[in-house]
């Protein structure tokens, strides 16, 4: 029963991701796009953790930790490029 709830929560989060993709595609400035990508990253982490508990597969959690740090680094890199015009 709890695992069904995990599935429902994961589906709701994926709907949120699609709505964020709208902002990433339309967003008038580069800053808007980075904000949308940052939100998608944090939602993906939550979905990964939920999927890991649905399938009883702990490996997904390692992937989620790595994705947390890589997503942060990517945001920092894009923001630095916007500010200084170089990496």
């Amino acid at each position: 029963m709890t695992e069904t709830a995990f599935l429902i929560a994961a589906i709701l989060l994926m709907v949120n991701v699609i709505l964020c993709l709208y902002r990433a595609a339309v967003g008038p400035t580069p800053g808007d796009r980075v904000v949308a990508i940052n939100m998608i990253t944090s939602k993906t982490i939550a979905v990964m953790a939920l999927v890991s508990f649905m399938y009883h597969e702990e490996l997904f959690l390692d992937v989620a930790i790595t994705y947390t740090l890589i997503g942060y680094t990517a945001t920092i890199c894009v923001a630095k490029y916007l500010e200084l015009k170089r990496l």
Binding site: T29, G31, V34, V35, N38, S42, I45, A49, E58, L61, D62, A64, I65, T68, L69, Y72, T75, I76, A79, K80, L82, E83
Partner: peptide, 28 residues
């Protein structure tokens, strides 16, 4: 692992927001 993920996100998320704001401040 979940505890570490929560700690990482609570540190990195405000920092990422701050740096996007600073990058946007000059040009937007």
């Amino acid at each position: 692992k979940l505890i570490f993920m929560i700690i990482f996100i609570w540190i990195t998320n405000p920092t990422a927001g701050h740096i996007i704001a600073r990058a946007s401040y000059d040009t937007i």
